[in-house]
Amino acid sequence: MGPSGAGKSTLLNILGLLDQANSGSYQLQGEAVENLRERKRQELHKKHMGFVFQAYYLIDDLTVYENIETPLIYRKVKKAERQAKVAETLDRFNIVAKKDLFPHQLSGGQQQLVGIARAIVAQPKLLLADEPTGNLHSSQGEVIMDLFKKLHREGMTIIQVTHNEKYAHYGSRIIELQDGFIRKDVALQTPASTYSKQPQV
């Protein structure tokens, strides 16, 4: 959490290996990421991470099914397996009926559902969400947060950037940032956390 310009998204991007830190060190699975080659970093990103954005960022030209399928293609998953995984995900998110629609035919909440489905279809260990509910009204937001809770319970680490105090409390730990520094780091009592890394900014 934190005000605009605090560095939340930047931190998230660094964690997600989309950006690099100017200074400091980022240990991922015991390796200093900044010492890795670009290719290796991409690989880690591809293997372990899923992204959810405030503006959903679905690919306009692709159907719901194809949007969800895309990460699997990039991970060179075989066709039959791809079909199985996408079908399973569609089923789980209750959007089987929408699979042949294009993003502009969906409501914002539905689009974000697809965005999350796409982010987790390749079964990442870490889900990074940048204000996932920012563009949604509250009932839609709660659906998303319940989903996150469920995913977390199944063992996925989720880092969420948010302005919303209520949604922040769905998590097990809240870090407040201001001007690039950690102002507050609170661990909540809910399920045992499974942090595998300690970011330093």
């Binding site: 997600g16 989309l18 991409q42 990103h45 591809k46 992204f51 960022y57 679905l58 690919i59 306009d60 030209d61 895309t70 990460p71 990039y74 991970r75 796409r118 390749a122």
Partner: peptide
Amino acid sequence: AKEVGVRKTLGSSKRQ
């Protein structure tokens, strides 16, 4: 550009 950005975060390599 946006599409490229999304695809990259979804794990697309440059070659792809």
